[in-house]
Simulated scan of single mutants.
Amino acid sequence: MHKNGNNNSSQYRNELKFRIIRTAMPLFKQKGIKAVRMDDIANILSISKRTLYEIYNNKEDLLLEGVKNDYYEMTKRIQDYAMTAENEIDIVVTFFRMKFADLDSITPKFFTELDKYEKVKLFMQEYKTEQQTEATEFIRKCIENGFFVPSINYGIIQEVCDYVMSSVISNSLYKKYTLKDIFCNFFIVLLRGFCTEKGLVLLDLYLKKTYI
Rank of each mutant, 00 (worst) to 15 (best):
I33W: 00
K34L: 10
K34P: 00
K34M: 00
A35L: 09
A35V: 04
A35F: 00
V36R: 10
V36I: 13
V36T: 11
V36A: 00
V36G: 05
R37H: 12
D39W: 06
D39S: 14
D39H: 12
D40Q: 12
I41M: 04
A42D: 12
A42C: 10
A42W: 10
A42Y: 09
N43G: 14
I44D: 01
L45S: 10
S46H: 12
S46I: 06
S46Y: 09
S46Q: 12
I47K: 08
I47L: 08
S48A: 08
S48F: 10
K49C: 01
T51D: 09
T51A: 13
T51Y: 09
L52K: 05
L52D: 09
L52R: 06
E54W: 07
I55T: 15
Y56P: 09
N57T: 11
N57Y: 02
N57M: 03
N58G: 00
N58R: 05
E60H: 02
E60R: 08
E60D: 03
E60K: 05
D61H: 13
D61E: 15
L62V: 07
L62R: 04
L63G: 01
L63N: 02
L63E: 05
L64Q: 11
E65Y: 09
G66A: 06
G66L: 08
V67H: 09
K68E: 06
K68T: 02
N69P: 00
Y71C: 14
Y72A: 04
Y72C: 08
Y72L: 15
E73S: 14
E73I: 00
M74S: 13
T75D: 15
T75H: 14
K76Q: 13
K76C: 07
K76S: 14
K76D: 14
R77A: 15
R77Y: 02
I78K: 03
Q79N: 15
D80E: 15
D80Y: 04
Y81H: 09
M83T: 13
M83H: 12
M83C: 02
M83D: 12
M83W: 03
T84Q: 13
T84Y: 13
T84S: 13
E86C: 01
E86A: 13
E86M: 10
E86F: 02
N87Q: 09
N87M: 03
E88F: 05
E88Y: 10
E88V: 12
E88T: 12
I89P: 03
I89V: 14
D90M: 01
D90C: 04
I91N: 07
I91Y: 07
V92K: 08
V93M: 03
T94P: 00
F95T: 08
F95I: 03
F95C: 06
F95Q: 11
F95L: 14
F96Y: 15
R97K: 14
M98E: 11
K99E: 09
K99H: 09
F100T: 03
F100S: 10
A101C: 00
A101R: 07
A101M: 04
A101W: 04
A101G: 06
D102G: 11
D102C: 07
L103S: 01
L103Y: 09
D104L: 00
S105L: 04
I106F: 02
I106L: 05
T107D: 01
T107Y: 02
T107L: 00
P108K: 00
K109Q: 15
F111E: 06
F111T: 01
T112V: 09
T112Q: 07
